[in-house]
């Protein structure tokens, strides 16, 4: 105990992360979109200023009432949701929601979802000069809406078109949120990076279904939903591993060949603790996001920050960057 304390005094750890275009986070831990609203609810439990960034709920051009209930069902160590992007629309989000986060000074990343590439462009353009907005996350992977959503996330050309449209209208860092419901996430990652994405985030939820055997029909009103939580963690870690491999020989300038990915990956899927987060970092994530675990334990996201710091101190790691993708470099048996 005493020994550990003396190490922590002696060696401050650099947890900062560079997500590109000048977006530097003080630490690698952020909230996952759709699991923390717009901050006010979570602020009752934690000091949001200690987050690396706050990623807001998926926001659309027009308000959406969301899907009819039931919208959520518990699964083994997970949840299946079909919220359907309920949100007040971009104008009210800018006017009523972002100022709260901006006042705190936590970097705000706005998750946006459109039905067409032009809608993504319109959303991004409206966010471009909003004070407090530090970046945009393109949700091209929502399984819970009729149009857009997953469609863009499963087709590299459509995805690239969305990214290119957004790239033209904003100087903000653009993060593309990838769906795991594809054969090769590496192809998607490369496509969006070549189209101008500054970073990728993964994974969004896995498409799934739960059937009520008594009533002999799916539990969720829309039938299908998105699976998240500890149940998907090994699947998600592997997707990050794959994306890191794919991006190691791709970079924004179209060159390549580096051993390490220059494009930051934000890893997520079932993170409940610093240990879980470190799996993603070692698989290649530069930053991580906590989603479903917040429902169960709203303080998780800050516990992950302190746990990562303590891990680095325990292992004599000066900068978290040393750990990013380290599991690839250790070699496999």
């Amino acid at each position: 105990m005493r020994r550990r304390r003396s190490i922590s005094l002696a060696s401050p750890v650099d947890l900062s992360v560079d997500l590109g275009r000048g977006l530097i986070l003080a630490n690698p831990v952020m909230t996952a979109s759709g699991t923390c609203g717009y901050g006010e609810e979570l602020a009752r439990f934690i000091d949001l200023r200690q987050l690396g960034a706050f990623v807001v709920k998926g926001t659309t051009l027009h308000p959406r009432v969301g899907n009819p209930p039931p919208r959520l069902v518990e699964t083994p160590a997970g949840v299946l949701n079909s919220i359907g992007l309920q949100n007040p629309g971009i104008d009210r989000v800018i006017a009523e929601k972002i100022p709260f986060l901006a006042r705190l000074g936590v970097p705000v990343i706005v998750n946006i979802a459109g039905d067409t590439p032009a809608e993504y462009g319109e959303l991004a353009a409206r966010l471009d000069k909003v004070s407090g907005v530090a970046g945009i996350e393109l949700n091209i992977s929502c399984p819970n809406v009729e149009k857009g959503g997953m469609l863009f996330g499963a087709d590299p050309q459509l995805a690239a078109e969305v990214v290119a449209t957004v790239r033209q209208v904003t100087r903000l860092p653009v993060i593309v949120k990838l769906s795991p419901n594809v054969t090769d996430i590496g192809i998607m990652a490369r496509a969006v990076v070549q189209a101008g994405a500054d970073a990728v985030s993964l994974v969004n939820t896995y498409t799934g279904m739960v059937i009520d055997v008594e009533r002999r029909r799916p539990v969720l009103a829309r039938g299908v939903g998105g699976l998240s939580g500890p149940a998907i963690r090994p699947l998600a870690v592997y997707q990050v591993w794959q994306a890191y491999r794919a991006l190691s020989d791709t970079d924004r300038e179209g060159g390549g060949g580096g051993e390490r990915s220059k494009v930051p990956i934000i890893g997520m899927g079932g993170i409940t603790s610093a240990r879980d987060a470190l799996e993603f970092i070692l698989a290649g994530a530069s930053a991580v996001a906590v989603g479903t675990a917040t429902f169960v334990r709203p303080v998780t996201v800050l516990e992950v920050v302190s746990g990562i710091r303590e891990y680095c101190q325990r292992h004599g790691i000066r900068s978290l960057r040393q750990l990013v993708g380290a599991a690839h470099r250790e070699g496999l048996a």
Partner: peptide
């Protein structure tokens, strides 16, 4: 059915 109980999951 409640996912969170404090207003963030919208379930």
């Amino acid at each position: 059915t409640m996912g969170c109980g404090f207003g963030v999951c919208l379930s």
